[in-house]
Design a protein around this nucleic acid. Structure first.
Lengths: 343, 343
DNA sequence: TATTAAAATACAATCGATTGTATTTTAATA
DNA sequence: TATTAAAATACAATCGATTGTATTTTAATA
């Protein structure tokens, strides 16, 4: 590896001290303009690039934001990461991305690893298995700012201020269900994720509320729980077909299962939306490509990612003032995208 | 921020020198077992975590691999990143992920940024706009190992050894086309990406070869070029419908356009696969959900990502020997997934 | 021209770990 | 017990940048 130009090389060539060069490069008012000019000129000439490792060590700032998501390749998360990357790049931060694979164990390890790397802040969406925050204790102690998004802790954390960025899950879920009711549906089956997870809990609540508002009785045998994987959609559809009386609509808490349910139902001769109307959640690319195209909720992961970075950098850069604030919950607006499957 | 335990804290408490503590923690044979034990015990007790910034600075290794992809949220790339993350985590490396947004300008900036951060190696898939490697010159000079994957430079780089990981694009493209021919197709339209990009170039070649092999004349008006965005699929389908004689098959160089073409064709009353058979490329999740389901090529981005990390860490850790080797091209096997759209 | 304040620069310590080498301790041998 | 080699530990420098403070230079004023 070729030796890179350092601040000392510049200093020597210009018969200056490295401290003056350092200040000159960062535009400090303590340095004369003329000196700044000659330093900058030489820096460009010798292609000087500050060594981040060194400056980070000295300033005790890693200039890095840790990001933990369940799975990078899931569309919502890769969109969020995309937004995070864009915004972090703009603000001059690097991001360190880890995936928990929806396992509590990996999530713990990831947190540990990010602590090791002295990240300035953490943006995280919790794993399916996460029910408490015991594995955050060290992170809390180190006072690293944390922003939770999408899958956030269900309870407020009294002992330290925290930022949560969530979707308006309950409200949009209410809208989605109401949309089905407006289409004349009365028997609306619901496929939920684990209700220990904030988002699924909220979506379920919205569903309940809409039924209640419309005075439609809530039938417990129309509500199913799973981890919302592809095959769960098929299982769910099978169970639906075993019901004495078929539902006239199915609402699933994600698109993956909505689509796999749809596919199975179609294979069994059920017509969508004529026999059963369907709604999913998240607006996966596949949902615009299915036949019929799937009504769903656009969550805008990109935007959520950007907001998460804005918040975490606020926390990092104005630590004092921000820390004084109490828990903060930011709610993003999502949109119901009405497509063929519910018309 | 609470002060973290350092190697000096341990040293002081044990009346040892920091150098001995450092060696003890890393299991150096220069330190007595008993000393190692008491050091490790205290390290656990005080929850010591080595400061990576400091050790990286000293050892002049960032322990970080830079990753540049066109877009994080594209399924193939998020899968690749997922594989990269998994393997890098196993090997104790961090990854710094950037997206070029398929722009040459951003790709340059990303390279610059990663250089700043002194990454130990770079894994990259080139942007659509990248036609030469002029923006790599500094990286080459710094002798940072590089692994290209998927979209790789078209020409061998004589002046330095480089690893490329590619799909068997040409071969699988040949197979895909032959599959259509075997299904009785003779007029196979092809929707290509820019042929300045390695993968599209190779896929086109495979298509040509298969036609030649079957003595089917190559009709230039059946071949279209675009950037393969969603709307390009619609444009392509429109042009297809304007042809005096319709093709009996369409082969698209990615799934996104294959699916949007399919959707448009269906909306115009064309039956798939009865009137026109279709094949895409990449096995996006949507392709298993469309109606008909789309025949496509499974590229296994996850596996490619893992291999990329294995290769880059080989380069980083055995720099000398590896540098002696000449250019290396690793070809991954992909699979043709035959679904309804081509039967 | 001498004095003084302000501006510019240099000095020195530091961030936390690592590493070559010097020194001390321990164990082995005469 | 004295000598010597080996083992264990301490010392000191270093990675490259940053920052508080001391020193020098420059400019302003008497």
């Amino acid at each position: 590896m070729k030796k890179r130009t350092t601040i000392h090389d510049l200093a020597k060539q210009l018969s200056l001290d490295s401290s003056t060069v350092s200040r000159a490069l960062r535009g400090s008012p303590l340095v004369k303009q003329k000196t700044k000019d000659i330093v900058n000129d030489l820096a460009i000439k010798l292609n000087y690039k500050p060594n981040r490792l060194a400056s980070n060590l000295r300033s005790n700032k890693s200039n890095t934001i840790g990001v933990i998501v369940p799975r990078i390749s899931r569309h919502f998360f890769s969109s969020a990461i995309s937004g995070i990357e864009e915004e972090a790049y703009k603000k001059g931060y690097n991001i360190l991305i880890c995936q928990s694979q929806d396992k509590f164990k990996y999530e713990s390890k990831n947190i540990d690893n990010l602590l090791h790397n002295r990240v300035d802040g953490l943006i995280i969406s919790l794993s399916l298995e996460t029910r408490d925050l015991s594995h955050f204790s060290e992170l809390f102690e180190s006072e690293t700012p944390i922003v939770f998004f999408d899958r956030v802790p269900m309870n407020a954390l009294e002992y330290r201020p925290i930022i949560k960025i969530v979707n308006d899950d309950e409200a949009i879920s209410y809208n989605a269900t109401t949309h089905l009711i407006n289409q004349g549906c009365e028997r609306i089956a619901y496929h939920s994720g684990p209700d220990s997870i904030s988002i699924y809990n909220a979506r379920l609540k919205g569903y309940y509320k809409a039924l209640k508002k419309a005075s439609i009785p809530i039938l417990k045998n129309m509500i199913f729980y799973s981890n919302l994987m592809l095959k769960d959609g098929v299982d769910f559809a099978r169970k639906i077909l075993e019901l004495k009386k078929l539902p006239d609509a199915i609402y699933s808490a994600n698109d993956t299962t909505a689509l796999s349910s749809m596919q199975y139902l179609k294979s069994q001769g059920i017509r969508i939306p004529q026999d059963i109307k369907m709604i999913g959640f998240s607006d996966e690319p596949a949902s615009a490509m299915s036949d019929p195209t799937l009504t769903t909720v656009d969550q805008s992961g990109v935007e959520m990612g950007k907001v998460a970075v804005k918040k975490i950098t606020d926390l990092i850069e104005n630590r004092e003032e921000m820390q004084l604030q109490s828990n903060q919950i930011i709610t993003m607006n999502s949109t119901l995208i009405i497509r063929e499957s519910s018309r």
